[in-house]
Design a protein around this nucleic acid. Structure first.
Lengths: 346, 346
DNA sequence: TGTGGGTGTTGGAACGGTCCAATGCCTCGT
DNA sequence: ACGAGGCATTGGACCGTTCCAACACCCACA
């Protein structure tokens, strides 16, 4: 761990010496204080430029007790809808001079690193947990929430005291999808379910809508796990082993997410069903998978960018008023109609 | 004496007081020094537990002159192959007690320089730039590289003095793909090109291999931009307007990446060509797109995980020996044969 | 001519750790 | 019996910044 003996990074003292002023004055210039004479300000700025001085964030945050950094806890970077949400988060946080420290709890777990501990040691100003976290991390999040302003984005749980949540209205999104299919004339509409609280909400939205339209007798729910493989298997169970024209076969499927829907798409093709002629298919999340023209899925857009922006707002709010009771926001989803839905055959 | 502004986070002094020892001893315990009596160690650990003490990373790094943090500069989080690479990076860095601070230079677009400034102010111990950066950021990277250990991962340029690079061997990957197609019996093999230095290398690999097999006369290169849309258009230009059985129509296409390949897939279907019966298709990057059974692309796996691991190794190396001349590593790609390639028709 | 208030500038005390030299104590060899 | 040496423990200097109280200085005013 030997350090090169070369000159260390210049400090405020070095700048002061070079400009022929005290370090306090340099500090004032850095903070844009108006009570500095133009001559000295100029001298200081020149010295900074010449030395290539950069303030040391660690020293600064040590005395200021603020790091201007927000910890972002991700479940899995591989999930494409995260990116939209992060973009929304970032735009608002950036505008308020905060930076994001991202940690993928899945990447971290492999090496046994405790992400929560890292955030605490770094004294981040707040934490945003994105998506549904594995149960193991819920305890860690609870511990974080006791000490730091914390917001959950893109998921409704865990509902912890003092933790705001901002999510898309999953139940309403499921309703939009189901109503779209009913509007096209479908009656035998099945659902491929997904895991977690989000999965439950989407299933409930589907079931409620079906019942409201007098289709309670047509309810079909196959469990899935939110992966393409899971969607494929669920679809095979649902559609396979029956002749294509069997009267009880579903004519439409609403899947938990785009991955599941794409799995179902493959299953349909293998079973000789053409989408959307023989089978309509709706996904969820409007990931770029759904935008691929070879797939071109009708899907529910759940306004992730907006969720991210609102989560950031909540966090800023909570940083200013730590004691305020937790709020729970919902963003309005919309339906993105593409090529995987059509009226039922016949 | 004491600020009565509320309960600040406990410090090492608070722990010391509670355990009835000096702050120095607490520090020794925290560092796992063997020269501490069991009794006092126990007392200190209990005090830490009771107070919920966490060391302050800022204070620590202030004196240690190390932050144990590596800045990761991303071009675009949306690009799925990044994730594999990050995973590889993370595994090695974590194992050496370093954490990653990720910054998407596109998210903070207005400020390519700003990301660099942030990294400098935070005094990160090193920087990893992932992928091909936009030109605007190259200057910022050069400035960073002058002051910090810097490694470029997943791209061959920019080649800056003192900057190591680790990338996959793009030329060799293209060679693997082309040879696979030639081995199946194809002769009229076209290429959909991509942007940047990587695009050039892959094109060169394709061209060289074709010539080596006496197929220099069959070279066909259509420009693309690495997107699905670009791949689609290139394929339409290449295949459209000719009867399916035209003797000069390519029987196989090697695309710059999986996105382009998927675009080409859609174009083929629209033109009534069945893949792989009428047209073979090879992508590149082995993203999870290629793994979707509905697409099931033969593709080049460019060992991103390995690239990430090796980039981390380089960085660790450079952090210890800052003056060592820059090295340029290549990871060996492999071919992942799936369902989009077959012998040519007839 | 003294008083008072603003204005520009400064030294020094934090902030929360690490590290080093110095301390006191205990054991051991001679 | 006594100094040497090892060991556990401690105070204090330091890292690079911000902030505050104190300081000269100048000008207006009584």
């Amino acid at each position: 761990m030997e350090r090169s003996k070369g000159p260390h990074a210049p400090t405020i003292r070095g700048v002061a010496e070079r400009a022929g002023v005290s370090k306090s004055l340099v500090s004032l210039v850095l903070q844009g204080s108006p009570r500095v004479s133009d001559a000295k300000r100029q001298a200081v700025l020149e010295a900074i430029e010449e030395l290539g001085y950069r303030p040391n964030a660690a020293a600064r945050s040590l005395v200021a007790r603020r790091t201007h950094t927000v910890g972002v806890l991700l479940d899995d970077l591989r999930n494409p809808w995260f990116v939209e949400l992060l973009d929304g988060l970032n735009s608002v946080l950036c505008a308020h001079g905060l930076r994001m420290l991202m940690a993928d709890s899945r990447l971290g777990r492999r090496t046994g690193e405790d992400v929560a501990r890292t955030f605490l040691e770094l004294r981040v100003d707040g934490v945003v947990a994105v998506g549904t976290l594995p149960d193991a991390d819920t305890a860690a999040l609870a511990e974080l929430a006791e000490r730091l302003p914390t917001v959950v984005a893109g998921s409704h749980d865990p509902r912890l005291p003092g933790v705001d949540t901002v999510a898309n209205d999953d139940e309403r999104g499921a309703r939009l999808a189901t109503e779209h299919l009913i509007g096209l004339g479908h009656r035998r509409i099945a659902h491929i379910a997904g895991p977690g609280g989000v999965g439950e909400l989407r299933r409930r939205g589907y079931e409620t809508t079906m019942r409201e339209h007098g289709l309670g007798g047509e309810l079909t729910v196959e469990p899935g796990d939110g992966t393409e493989e899971g969607g494929y298997r669920a679809a095979v169970r649902m559609l396979g082993g029956r002749p294509a024209a069997a009267p009880e076969r579903p004519t439409a499927v609403f899947a938990f997410n785009d991955f599941s829907a794409v799995g179902a798409l493959s299953a349909a093709r293998e079973l000789g069903l053409e989408v959307p002629r023989d089978l309509s298919l709706v996904g969820c999340d409007n990931t770029y998978l759904a935008r691929i023209r070879h797939l071109w899925l009708t899907t529910v857009d759940n306004a992730s960018h907006d969720v991210g922006r609102r989560a950031a707002q909540r966090l800023l709010d909570r940083m200013e008023h730590p004691a305020r009771p937790a709020g729970h926001g919902l963003a309005a989803p919309s339906l993105e109609v593409r090529g995987s839905t059509a009226p039922p055959p016949g």
